[in-house]
Amino acid sequence: MELAFYIAAIVAIISTVLAITRLNAVHALLYLIVSLLSVAVVFFVIGAPFIAALEVIIYAGAIMVLFVFVVMMLNLGKAAIDMEKQWQRGSMWVGPSILAAILIAEVAYLVAGPGAAVYGAAAIEPKQVGIVLFGPYLIGVELASMLLLGALVGAYHLGRRTPEKEKRESRNGIGTHASGTAPGGDLVRAGADRPSGSA
């Protein structure tokens, strides 16, 4: 069991490192998915099978897929990769690395303090989790659902392409707001003004 844990941990770390250093967005996402899967394995080893499943289904399955969708939609071509190459210089890694290193040191110091963990091998059943969810954490569940509702509405609104404005402009001919540019693709013109309201 412990071996599985260590292997999964190492894989997670390596794939994370690779994920943040890739130039191509899709590559990075794939590496990230690998990282998430290995974390799920870690969860399973620790004794939280329910969460492991959830991790795979929701995190790796839904959220990452969403990422992939958006990346594909944006249709970044080779130009984007060149830009990335240009942006990323070796010297840029110095500062953040230092910050991160200090952070690691602090956390390590904390963890290495008294009260070091001894692995309890007892797994926590999903049933237990469910009971606790419906018990003391009921309100958290409600809040989470409201949060998701809000996210849903916000995402819908933010992702819109303001179709009324386009109709209005095509009716009037010369636009009242936007200067009279040639009607082109939505992506080009719709970005000329801010989305009404804010999320």
Binding site: G95, L99, A100, I102, L103, E106, Y109, L110
Partner: peptide
């Protein structure tokens, strides 16, 4: 973001 990170580091350091 870097500012936040640095701030939290300092904070932790103070607490520790």
């Amino acid at each position: 973001a870097a500012g936040i990170a640095a701030g939290s580091i300092i904070f932790l350091a103070i607490v520790l």
